[in-house]
Amino acid sequence: MAVIQVEHVRKRFGNKDALEDVSFSIPKGEIFGFLGPSGSGKTTLIKILTAQLNPTDGQASVLGQPATTMQQSAQKMRFGILTDNSGLYERLTIEENLELFRQLYSLPKSSIDKVLQFVNLSGERKKKVNRLSKGMRQRVMLACAIIHEPELLFLDEPTSALDPVNSAHIYKGLRYLNEKGTTIFLTTHDMAEAESLCDRVAILYQGQIQAIGSPKELKKQHRENVVRVDLTNGEAYELPVTEGTADQIADWMKRGLIDRLATKEPSLGDIFIQMTGSELL
């Protein structure tokens, strides 16, 4: 069953299309990444899927219900969201912020300990939010979004303010949540994050999906048929994959000249630039 189903969605602001005929579906249990530069329509799509915006045309369903019903309390119990518009109560402690969310979601008290452990903030629970670093705030916001262990999680740049150690901790936690059945829809600029976390990604540019598939599939589709050979004498070659190249490599191998041999595989960032002519900003 598709957790998110988007069919020919278009969103127009004034005379500009933020989204043009966007269609895709996300099955249960997938980590799906949406890649695109600022202003490409990623946030607009999250807002449509969470009923903060209505589409101009097309249909979207989330968790088997029309996306327009996502503002109902029963539906809001089923998903969590962390966007750059999320906020925290500055004068309250981390624990007091989470206590509010615990009560709003009618959860047991133990849920606070559990989620604090998840975001690696158990020792900081009594700290006021206005004393926290940007990275710690990001982790508290993530804790607020997942305290109720949602079926579906929307994440907008979840590790943008985090250092590599904390990012790795969050990735581990997200994979754990995903293994327990949470479907994750995330937007990111970080190609390494998309490659390591996502089962599938979509590249959104100028309101349209330019490519969709697993990182592996996309790389395969856009792979140049070239091998790179570094020789022990310092020479390096990029050779087309042909019979002649195979003979040449075999010869170098026999003579013990090969230092490194690799296929030339594009990164997701390279694929994006190739498809749009723009860099991710």
Partner: peptide
């Protein structure tokens, strides 16, 4: 203040009506 700090929008995304 809730609007300025985006907490009103965060509240909106919880089950609170």
């Amino acid at each position: 203040e809730e609007k300025e700090r985006n907490t009103l929008r965060t509240l909106m995304m919880t089950p609170a009506t």
